[in-house]
């Protein structure tokens, strides 16, 4: 680990001011991914600003039935919050499908949004990686890429976003609240928050340097059944090969509302609007779900070892929709 200086921020404004004042500063909250990467010198901040004790841990009701998750709310507290469990069970399920209890007790909502890929070559500092060293090449292309992206990848990077939580948030139309160095805050729809790799896979989100995530805001969830399904080799404590988050509301034999998001398939949690469009207003049926899954994966491209994930994602999605659509 490279040496760095450390300070604990007194409040959110002080945190962003501190970040603006220092070159190569990073915020540290739970630290469960940042320290993991710093230990391997994949992340090399010169200065750490500890935001773990900022008063951003509350989960508050929003007017209109939404929920505001403080960026420092722990993954475990969020998953266990009665309002999350009853109004956003998809989020609770997704959080609980991720990592381990110990990690969830430490990991924050904001940090989870920013966790980086688990691509083996990103972690292997002896292998080329455009994310680690822009322009260095991508070892996963033509390499062992069983866990890699089938959607939205580029010739520069085929890594996936590992978050389960973000898949649920994507389906729930969450917004991210950011505080800038000037003290101004802005909101970004999660749908616009993540970037595809294209030619700059090292730039993963629209967060500006020094900008702090202060909250995730969930709008009122539409009526409907919510379900998260994660597929993996090990029964627990493993990142997804493929995951599916769905919300499905069927009224009088017609799909009134549907949300579909996929995890483990792309550089970002993948919202499958095409699948939603296929289903909305249609009578629920396995054939309709199959058509939706085909639409969601229509542009999927396998890279060899991960070819199976296309079929796997479709099957998992059809199954999740079938379960969510049961009367």
């Amino acid at each position: 680990m490279k040496a760095f200086t450390y300070e604990r921020a007194a409040d959110a404004r002080a945190a962003v001011a501190a970040a603006a004042a220092r070159a190569n500063a990073k915020f540290i909250a739970g630290g469960t991914n940042l320290l993991d990467l710093m230990r391997l010198e994949i992340e090399q901040p010169a200065h750490l600003i500890d935001i773990s004790r900022l008063p951003l841990q509350a989960i508050d009701d929003e007017p209109g039935g939404g929920l505001r998750l403080g960026a420092q709310a722990r993954n475990s507290d969020t998953a266990a919050d009665p309002r999350v469990r009853t109004r956003y069970p998809l989020l609770s399920q997704a959080l609980l499908a991720g990592a381990s209890a110990q990690l969830r007790n430490k990991a924050s909502i904001g940090g989870n949004l920013l966790q980086r890929t688990r691509c083996a070559y990103f972690y292997d500092t002896t292998a080329p990686c455009n994310k680690r060293t822009p322009g260095g090449g991508c070892a996963a292309i033509g390499g062992l890429n069983r866990n890699h992206a089938i959607l939205g990848a580029s010739d520069a990077c085929i890594a996936t976003n590992p978050s389960d939580m973000a898949v649920a948030l994507m389906a729930l139309d969450a917004e991210v609240e950011l505080l800038g160095a000037t003290g101004a805050s802005r909101r970004v729809a999660l749908r616009d928050f993540y970037l595809l790799p294209e030619t700059t896979p090292h730039i993963e989100t629209v967060v500006h340097p020094g900008e702090l995530i202060t909250a995730v805001v969930l709008p009122r969830a539409p009526a409907g059944r919510q379900l998260y399904r994660k597929v993996r080799d090990r029964a627990s404590y493993e990142f997804a090969l493929v995951s599916v988050g769905v919300l499905l509301a069927v009224e009088k034999g017609t799909v009134e509302e549907v949300r579909v998001a996929l995890g483990g398939v792309a550089h970002k949690p993948w919202r499958a609007l095409e699948a939603e469009a296929v289903l909305r207003g249609r009578a629920p049926s396995v054939a309709a779900y199959q058509a939706a899954a085909d639409a969601a994966l229509a542009r999927a491209v396998g890279r060899g070892h991960n070819d199976f994930k296309i079929e796997l994602a479709k099957r998992t999605l059809v199954d999740a929709l079938t379960k969510a659509g049961r009367p």
Binding site: R118, A120, R234, A235, S236, E238
Partner: peptide, 23 residues
């Protein structure tokens, strides 16, 4: 083994999977 580099590509316990309790 990644035959291009002669390395075990996945070198940690998140990637080399041993049975967890849930298994």
């Amino acid at each position: 083994v990644d035959p291009r580099y002669g390395s075990f590509a996945a070198r940690d316990l998140a990637q080399y999977l041993v049975p967890a309790h849930a298994d």
